[in-house]
Amino acid sequence: MNALNAFLFVAFPYAAVLVFVIGLAIRYRHRGFTISSLSSQFLEGRRLFWGVVPFHVGLLIILTGHLLAFLVPSSILAWNAEPVRLIILEVSAFAFGLSVLVGLGSLMFRRFTESRVRAVTTRMDIAVEVLLLTQIILGLWVALGYRWGSSWFAADLSPYLWSLFALKPETEAVYALPWVIKLHIFGAFLLIFMVPFSRLAHIFVAPLHYLSRPYQQVMWNWDRGAIRDPNTAWSRARPRNN
């Protein structure tokens, strides 16, 4: 049992993060063409709306929540000190969780029933969606069954995650958790592990730099000043294979 726990909550998280970082870097550098959000809106637009928007909006908020509980646990705990605020936080988080569930459910239903969307579906898409669905159901189950998640995440899980970061894993708290929560944690690392191999990679090319760039982009293939100097062309760029 302990060996399994050690694998699930120490070895695998490290492996997953390592694969994630190296894999994503390699894919971005050398297989940039394969990174795409692979939108199917062009084939079917109306039904997509009712799935994709609740799914993404809900997921963004839920993920931010998890991230905050991990990064600034004390603030979350301070917020939760007041029961009313705790309830507000938990109820709204649960609502967004439901929105993810409904969104993903309708996306999957669309994927299986629209023949055009089926035509652009890969096995990896289905694997990712099934995994996400499991993860969300587990998450909602945890939220309902093991109250109050926002507090104990901040108090118990955040130190565990930080300890992983510090390369000194402290795992007692995790080993003692009920299996539903354990599965949810494992699922999270599994998703991280799968990022470089699936469409999930598109999260990491979210176009936030668009906000800071000028609208028009002009690119020069050659150095405008140097090009009229006959010496530079050959010294700068040489054919690679001769």
Partner: peptide, 10 residues
């Protein structure tokens, strides 16, 4: 949004 499209200066 990605900045994938550009106009060639030349």
């Amino acid at each position: 949004p990605s900045g994938a499209i550009y106009k060639r200066g030349e």
